[in-house]
């Protein structure tokens, strides 16, 4: 008797989790308000192939076949596409978080994830005069050269993709000024994986 119960229970749980996965795969789209406008992301990008080709990087841009590690830094979570969409809907739409593009503006101009903002990694390197202002724009409080991150936004940082170190550089710089690791996460796939999967992309044209 108990054996049957166990079998039924296992079957049900397998079905349930499979159903959950199926539902998640189906829901790989999102709609949210960003800067007062409705942004919709889905996987029907007719230009996917062209974008994917433009982001492809057979040779590492750092002069060697460098590949970003799975984890950008201790305490910083690495996320996939589903979590990126959840972040946009849960955090960005509620002004609690920002999807941050760590690339330089010329790279970003090729195309970016809708609802993202540009924070080029170079702006956070060293004591640039913008650094304090940037940190305050991210919600930190400043006093006498010291920052408080209690009000700081959650940041989900991405770049071209696994072949690029822009996001890693930005994350390191943010951690150095004291940005709490639990408020930073990393979308490693970046534009390379995003475009191959046919997700919506905006560009400057």
């Amino acid at each position: 008797m108990s054996r049957w119960t166990a079998i039924i229970a296992v079957t049900c749980s397998v079905c349930a989790s499979a159903g959950g996965a199926y539902a998640q795969a189906l829901e790989a789209k999102a709609s949210f308000i960003f800067n007062g406008q409705t942004v919709t992301i889905d996987r029907n990008n007719s230009d996917a192939a062209r974008y994917a080709a433009s982001f492809a990087a057979p040779v590492g841009s750092c002069g060697a076949p460098c590949i970003a590690p799975m984890q950008a830094a201790a305490g910083v979570d690495t996320l996939g596409e589903t979590e990126v969409l959840s972040f946009l809907v849960d955090k960005v739409a509620n002004s609690e978080g920002l999807l941050v593009d760590a690339r330089m503006p010329e790279d970003r101009a090729q195309g970016f994830i809708p609802g993202s903002v540009n924070l080029p990694y170079a702006t956070m390197l060293g004591e640039t005069k913008f650094r304090a202002e940037i940190l305050q724009a991210l919600g930190t409080r400043a006093l006498d050269g010291v920052f408080n991150f209690a009000d700081a936004q959650h940041l989900l940082i991405f770049d071209t993709g696994p072949s690029s170190d822009d996001a890693g550089t930005l994350i390191t710089a943010l951690l150095e000024v004291g940005y709490p690791a639990e408020k930073i996460s990393y979308y490693r796939g970046g534009m390379q994986v995003w475009s191959v999967l046919g997700f919506s992309i905006e560009d400057m044209n």
Binding site: N35, V100, V117, P120, F130, E133
Partner: peptide, 16 residues
């Protein structure tokens, strides 16, 4: 004005 500290960071908008 949530948008003040909200998602308006863009390269041109640093000097607030």
């Amino acid at each position: 004005d949530q948008s003040e500290s909200g998602p308006q960071v863009s390269f041109g908008a640093y000097v607030k």
